[in-house]
Design a protein around this nucleic acid. Structure first.
Lengths: 219, 219
DNA sequence: CTCCGACTGGACCACCCGGTCCACCCAGGC
DNA sequence: GCCTGGGTGGACCGGGTGGTCCAGTCGGAG
């Protein structure tokens, strides 16, 4: 398992925003906002609820942010940066070769483990599931989704190059399918996780990755 | 292709509601409501917009319906009934046997064609894509989703019984995966349909069904 | 003709939304 | 001490929400 032996540059352009060191007050605000946005999406989220939750007044909020939208963008940027730091997605080129699938499976397992431990930025994941409305007007969200998409496309391309991924389907469709399958697995796992033992979970994880492989690999 | 030779009873319990013959006014209301709910979901949909769209006044609406929720339930029931009539989903038991996959593919193709021609109740499909919020409080939506789920589960069970579907994954997960894949294909197709010729579409449809089969069939 | 009930228009309600505005507080420089 | 300017509380705004209410209009039955 020497996949990450030498330092891996994570190279999807999650905004490497030079954020000014956030004050505790601002940190509380961002946490409350992340929770609210994650559970309700952008439009349904109530700014009033956010500032109420962290005991901040309207004017104090608007002193730091221009709008609800600006807050959302900031939350997305912050969470995306934290997530990228945590996941350390491998360079797609490194996945190519006869070990394509084992390597990819290693990364997926690693990513799943990283996302399993609850952290505030894990809420970001939920925003992926309702991107239709929020993504339209959020530059940060568009940037993030585009970056993820580019990474997935690159991985698929590498997989095709080494014969590990079939090429009789449009790549963009394959990417969407893979995303949908991972997402469905994620949802299902979250719902059934408590009712399974450790062994069942391992078996499940293996079966899930196997399903993904069946979907994408040739023959 | 004698799958539907003898009359097929569609047996998921879409409310066979004995609706009083809807007046033209009511029909316009339901159409406007379906459009609004389909594009915005239940909560974001504006009742005011609906009645404005069909030139009805608040009081006239509330004379016929108890609430926005009641309107939504009625729309779902109506659309579900129309859809069930149109699709004529086969009895899962009839799919069993060595022809499981060809038969299922025939039905999926038939269903796709039926849904392709635009009709007002086709909007119902869009509600499937945002069931999280609306389904919670709508008895009609819960009933419909439960019915579809039961049908899918029955199909999977029949497929397992005749060895056409692998059984090393939980059935509920398989159902969710199949649903997610079909949904992703649907979305992608809608987005790319115009840029393809007829031949490409046929090839695409075949590839899509093949992908579904890869995901669910053993080996 | 009267009466009645189904139906309609539209004013109105309380509530919530994102956003603005202004008076104020208070630490730091002079 | 005073001034200043970043930060703050909270009243307030316009607008949209689902829902209520009531005064009327009409067609048909008696």
């Amino acid at each position: 398992m020497h996949v990450v032996d030498h330092p891996v540059q994570c190279r999807y352009d999650v905004a490497m925003n030079a954020t000014p060191p956030p004050s505790p007050r601002e940190r509380a605000l961002l946490a409350a906002a992340a929770r609210e946005f994650a559970t309700a999406g952008f439009e349904r989220a109530s700014l009033n609820a956010v500032i109420r939750a962290c005991g901040m007044s309207k004017s104090s909020f608007y002193h730091r942010f221009d709008s609800k939208q600006a807050l959302f963008d900031r939350v997305v940027d912050e969470a995306a940066a934290a997530l990228a730091r945590e996941l350390a997605a491998p360079d797609p080129a490194e996945l190519a070769g006869p070990d394509f699938w084992p390597r990819l499976e290693a990364f997926v397992a690693h990513a799943a483990a990283a996302l399993a431990k609850p952290a505030w930025y894990a809420d970001l994941g939920k925003l992926f599931y309702l991107p239709d409305v929020s993504a339209e007007r959020s530059a940060a969200m568009r940037r993030l989704l585009a970056g993820v998409d580019r990474w997935v496309q690159a991985v698929l391309k590498a997989g095709r190059a080494c014969g590990a991924v079939r090429d009789d389907l449009p790549a963009s469709l394959q990417a969407e399918l893979a995303f949908a399958v991972l997402q469905a697995m994620d949802r299902w796992s979250i719902r059934h996780m408590e009712t399974m033992g450790a062994a069942a979970r391992r078996r499940l994880a293996a079966s899930q990755l196997d399903s993904l492989r069946r979907l994408l690999a040739p023959d």
